[in-house]
Each structure stands twice: as structure tokens, then as C-alpha cells.
Design a protein around this nucleic acid. Structure first.
Lengths: 175, 175
DNA sequence: CCTCCTGACTTTATTTCCTAAACTCAGGGC
DNA sequence: GCCCTGAGTTTAGGAAATAAAGTCAGGAGG
């Protein structure tokens, strides 16, 4: 098993390799890796719920939005909820499920990376903060993602991690 | 500003909205959101460097791989490094830059999400662990992503975060 | 009753992207 | 001179994205 850090220069130690297709990253990307999917989730996290809201915010074509929402609903990331405005007929809106809400760390990580390397010259446009302002235990400080291990070591630098096979691992022989 | 958690039910409080296009998530996805890009980065983190390695591991078409590698190099995620095997001519391989290595938290977050909702019935195929086995301060425990704020509050539940405008924010009037 | 209006989609045509497979190109070995 | 390898490029076909127009179900107004 090679070190996750590409600084592992000794290529020879690598004797067996985990099948890269049987991987949760690949499966996750199959669900949320299509264009627009994570942006739809981001807008949903920011309060968007209705077809027209997503459309106006993202500038996405309506057929694509319909297709992506269907995919996300089918995957369990969002759910279709009926609503009715007074003096209007019943319509449907789209809300994140718990599964969808659990994408928040991923989006925060992407945001952080984008802020670090691709931000607007004026600085980030969005800062993720701790707790809403109306909460009585308000904090308001910026939030970051960190890596920590089950033994309680916190703030692991990203180079201190490596991939190891899990119970579902399949191996490929090396040439 | 609305709570990131879509559980914020009071839609009326939202008076101005951050421009969703001017956002680091969108910019990050413009770079690594294309199909294959994050999988290429994942393989690079796992030690892949050469064209044929990426190709064999991912089963990606060679023209697309060439195009994606070019994009990643142009974006500063990877760099093209010459190498020469003994008795062979000079060739090029692709390595992650620091910018590319900084995608590790994102990938760990995606992996975690995939493990939670889409894993192989036998369990995850990959476990990210703390430190390589040959390190003298070996730990080996599984690694997780956590959210924490600048005030030192750790292990924030994802619902305890909200989006606030940063210095580069542009606002849209609400209809 | 008839028409207009709105929100939520479909349909259609055009362009762009992805896949698969064949082909090129630069050396080194035989 | 001919073949081999790794690293791409080219080409042709199919799938997906974009843009714009059309549909559809009700409610409101006249």
C-alpha cells in the first residue's frame, strides 16, 4: 500500500493494489459528480427549494434541472415534498434528506480549497460560520474542516494519512 | 442570510442573498468538477504518476485522460515532470502539486459520505488511516473529517454551520 | 365561460463532451 | 531496417449539455 502523499517515492514497495473501481469515492461521484449536482445541493443548503429558485440562482437549463433533481431524488439526496401557497394549486418542492445534508463537510472542504487557490481577489464571497446568529449559543467564528483519527489525534496534516484496504476491498495483481 | 441547514423554515427572514455564481465552490468545481478529474487526483494520491497507470487503473479513454491531465496541469493541480527509465528515452509523468495534495480533505469527505450511504455490502473497500505503517510514530487509526471553528469549538455537527457573506461577496436583490 | 398568468416542467435542435478504436511518433533493442 | 513500448492524437459514433420554445394544470380577472 502506498502512502497517500505522492511524496512516497519508493514505487517498489507497492505489491498489491486496491481495486480503484470498488471505491466509495467513485460511487459518491457517480451520484453527485455530475455537473450541477453539487451546486444544486449547495443552493438547497442555502435555502433553495423550488424549481424556479434553483433555476434562477444557477442559470441551469430547466430540462437539465429537472433531470438532476430526479437523479438526486432517486439517489436519496433530496426528496420531493408537496406544498401549496394560499390561492394557488399544489406544487412540489425539493428538500435535502439527511443523506443530502451530510454532504456539508464535502462542500465545506471544496469551498476551503476554492478559497485557498481560486478565490476572488477581494477575498472569499462566502464564509461558513459556526451557528446562526439568532441562536443563544451564538459563536459566529469561521468553520474549517480538519482531519482527525479515532485515537484522538487532531488536526492531522493531510500528508499524515494513507489508504489502507477495508473489509470490502478487492485486490488487483500488479503487472 | 439563511441557515445552511435546510431546516431553517422561516423563508421570510431572507432579505439579501449572496451571488451564487461568485463562489469558491463553483470555481472549485469548474476545475475539479469535470468527470474523471477527482478520480485522477485520487489515483495520483494513491501513487499513480504515468499516463498508462492512470489509464489502466481508471479505464478512461486516452484522449480524455490527456485532456484532463492538461486541464489539471493548467489549473495547477498537477505538474508534468520529466523522467527517464534506464535504457529508455525521456518521458513525462504527472504529479500532484501542493494545490492538488490539498484536495485530500475533499476526497476524504467524499469517501466518508460514500461509505455511509453507498458502500459495498461487505463494508468500505478503502479506509483512510493515520500515518504510514513505516513511520515511527505510527498510529494507524481511521481518519475522519470534522468541522471546527476558529474559536476552538470542535466536532461541530454539520447543522451548526451557516453561510455568511465574506469580503468578496456580491449581493442580489430579492424579487 | 373564456382568456391570461404562473410555476413546473417537456420537447426540440444545436453544440459540446465522452467512448472506443485506430493511428502517430520518438526513441531503443534486435 | 524492423519491431516494441509508452505516450499520446485522430476520427467516428453516441450520449449529454445548452438554449429556446412549447405544454400543462390550476387560479384570477372579466
Amino acid at each position: 500500500m502506498e502512502i497517500v502523499n505522492s511524496g512516497g517515492y519508493d514505487r517498489a514497495v507497492q505489491t498489491q493494489r486496491i481495486d480503484p473501481v470498488n471505491c466509495s469515492v467513485a460511487r459518491a461521484l457517480a451520484v453527485v459528480g455530475e455537473r450541477w449536482s453539487l451546486l444544486i445541493v449547495r443552493e438547497a443548503l442555502d435555502g433553495a427549494r423550488r424549481f424556479g429558485e434553483f433555476r434562477a440562482r444557477l442559470g441551469i437549463a430547466s430540462n437539465l434541472l429537472a433531470a438532476r433533481l430526479d437523479t438526486l431524488v432517486a439517489a436519496g439526496v433530496m426528496r420531493r415534498v408537496p406544498y401549496q401557497e394560499p390561492g394557488d394549486r399544489q406544487r412540489f418542492e425539493y428538500r435535502l434528506t439527511d443523506q443530502g445534508l451530510d454532504l456539508r463537510p464535502t462542500l465545506v472542504a471544496l469551498l476551503e480549497w476554492g478559497d485557498k487557490y481560486l478565490a476572488d481577489p477581494q477575498g472569499p464571497s462566502v464564509i461558513v460560520r459556526h451557528r446562526p446568529a439568532d441562536d443563544r449559543t451564538a459563536c459566529g467564528e469561521p468553520v474549517r474542516v480538519t482531519l482527525e483519527c479515532a485515537a484522538g489525534h487532531t488536526h492531522l496534516p493531510p500528508e499524515a494519512i494513507y489508504r489502507a484496504p477495508g473489509p470490502g476491498a478487492r485486490f488487483l495483481d500488479r503487472a
